[in-house]
Amino acid sequence: MADVLVVNPLGAALRHYSRALVDNLAAAGAEASVRAFAEPSASSGGRARWILTYYATLMRARRARRCVLVLWPPLGFVDLVTTRLLAGPNSWVVVHDPEPLVRSVGYGWLAVRLASLLPTAHVISHSAAADDHLIRVLHKASTRIAHPVARPARREMRTGPARIRVLGQYKRDRDLALLSDLAARLPSDAQLDIVGRGWPIVHGWRTTDRFVDEVEFDALVRSSDAVLIPYRRFFQSGVAVRCVEWGTPVVGPAESSLLALLGADNPGLVGDATSVEGWVRATVDVLGRSRSELDAVAREAHLRAVADWSRWVGRSRAGTPL
């Protein structure tokens, strides 16, 4: 039987995350099996059926006495309690955004109260900011582990005008004013594109408002010369991780989880995230990075992730938190 049962309630949105995690666990010497089911927005089933499938999966795992790793709590902080109750003491829940960037269920005062007072599953976070927030809200520390990073792939280096993109769903913490200012100051021949669901028109950028599936998303990452992460606030960036895996340069705030992902000396880190000039300079700098430099970033990020998950494997086998 596999060491870990990975439960993915967001079978569509977290498909790549799940694959990268299984890769990291295998490299760490653990065998994982995955139970994934699509979220209501990506399936014909309703929300109630989705929640019941999740709870039934947890109960079966408990009867089999397996370590359970949940990749997303369907009902937010409430599910930190229900997962512990149904799956047992060796259950773990990844909390990506302890203060959701989009409207979500299960993060209100009652959910916080329940999770702060009752026994909960062990919580995993992927950044110092997320861990700090959990301590402030729940008065409980999380186990901080690197975001899974798949084995590095390689994209072909391009010639011609730079393709600079922003990828992923629009969220209220995207800095639209920054993007408008950047459009006027980035190289005049650069192709500026925003692709993702829910985006408004942004001056100076060609905006495509629609859902992007896995295959197209990878193609967009591979064909980009730089990808910007223009958030005012975020806990971690799956988009940035995908770029690192493919060797695509990333530009974003230095005071964020990007510091741990990219390394302190990465030219794509913007020291002052409010400085348009800083973003322009970082973008121009990453466009000149060599193949070997980008490969090194990907390799080191993958090794850091495997090392973190290796430590978790040892503790999860013992049934104790890090």
Rank of each mutant, 00 (worst) to 15 (best):
S188L: 10
D3T: 01
A190N: 00
E31V: 12
V93Y: 02
H96K: 06
G11Q: 08
R63T: 15
D272Q: 09
R84L: 07
E31S: 14
L118I: 02
V239L: 01
T83V: 10
A150M: 10
A298D: 13
L258C: 07
V284P: 06
S290Y: 06
R154Y: 14
V195Y: 05
P9G: 01
R103I: 10
A64T: 10
D175N: 09
A115V: 00
S310W: 06
I124F: 07
G314L: 11
G160Y: 04
L322P: 11
P119C: 01
F211K: 09
H133G: 13
G238W: 00
P89Q: 07
T83C: 12
L21T: 01
R299T: 15
R60P: 13
F37V: 02
E39D: 07
L110H: 12
R19C: 12
V78G: 14
S116L: 13
L110V: 14
D132S: 12
L261M: 05
A184K: 08
E39R: 01
V306Y: 01
V306T: 10
L134S: 05
V313L: 02
R233D: 11
A273Q: 10
A115L: 05
S127M: 09
R210V: 05
L220S: 11
D209C: 02
A177L: 14
K171R: 15
A307P: 03
L176Y: 10
L75A: 15
L322S: 11
L192V: 05
R222E: 15
A38T: 09
L167D: 06
R62D: 12
L261N: 02
V102L: 07
V7M: 05
A20E: 12
S275V: 05
G106E: 00
D132A: 15
D209Y: 00
G252I: 04
T82R: 11
L261V: 11
S91A: 10
S44F: 14
F77K: 07
H147G: 11
A48E: 10
G88M: 08
T143W: 07
V149R: 06
A177W: 14
W205N: 07
G76E: 03
A121E: 11
G160M: 02
A296H: 13
R60V: 15
S275G: 02
